[in-house]
Amino acid sequence: MRNLMFSALLAATALLSPAAQAEGIEAGKQYVELSTPVPVAKPGKIEVVELFWYGCPHCYQFESTLNPWADKLPEDVNFVRVPAMFGRVWDIHGQMFITLEAMKVEHKVHSAVFDAIHKEGKKLATPEEMADFVATQGVDKAAFLKTYNSFGVKGQVEKAKKLAMAYQITGVPVLIVNGKYRFDIGSSGGPEKALEVADHLIAKERAAQ
Rank of each mutant, 00 (worst) to 15 (best):
V139L: 07
L124Q: 14
E120T: 01
V174F: 03
K162A: 15
D71C: 00
A125M: 12
W69T: 02
F144E: 06
D91C: 10
K119I: 01
L163D: 12
E129G: 07
A160Y: 10
F79S: 05
E120F: 04
A142H: 03
M130V: 02
A160I: 07
A131S: 10
E101Y: 03
G152R: 08
W69I: 04
A112F: 12
G171E: 07
F114P: 00
A112I: 04
A112P: 07
M165P: 00
A164D: 06
G152F: 10
V139Q: 12
T65C: 09
V134Q: 11
Q137D: 04
A84W: 13
T65S: 13
S150R: 11
W69L: 08
L73V: 03
R88E: 08
I169W: 06
F62W: 04
D71Q: 13
V105Q: 00
M103A: 12
F86G: 13
L73F: 11
E128P: 00
E129T: 05
A112Y: 11
K162E: 15
E120W: 10
Q156Y: 00
V174Y: 07
S150L: 07
K119A: 00
N178I: 00
A142I: 08
P127W: 10
F79L: 11
P74R: 04
G138H: 07
F86R: 09
V113C: 10
M96H: 14
D115T: 11
I169F: 04
T147D: 04
K154W: 11
G138N: 06
Q137Y: 12
A160H: 10
I169A: 08
A131R: 13
I169S: 09
K154D: 15
E120V: 03
V157W: 02
D71H: 10
H110T: 02
D71N: 05
M103L: 15
D76Y: 12
A164G: 08
E158P: 00
L124E: 15
P83N: 08
Q168T: 06
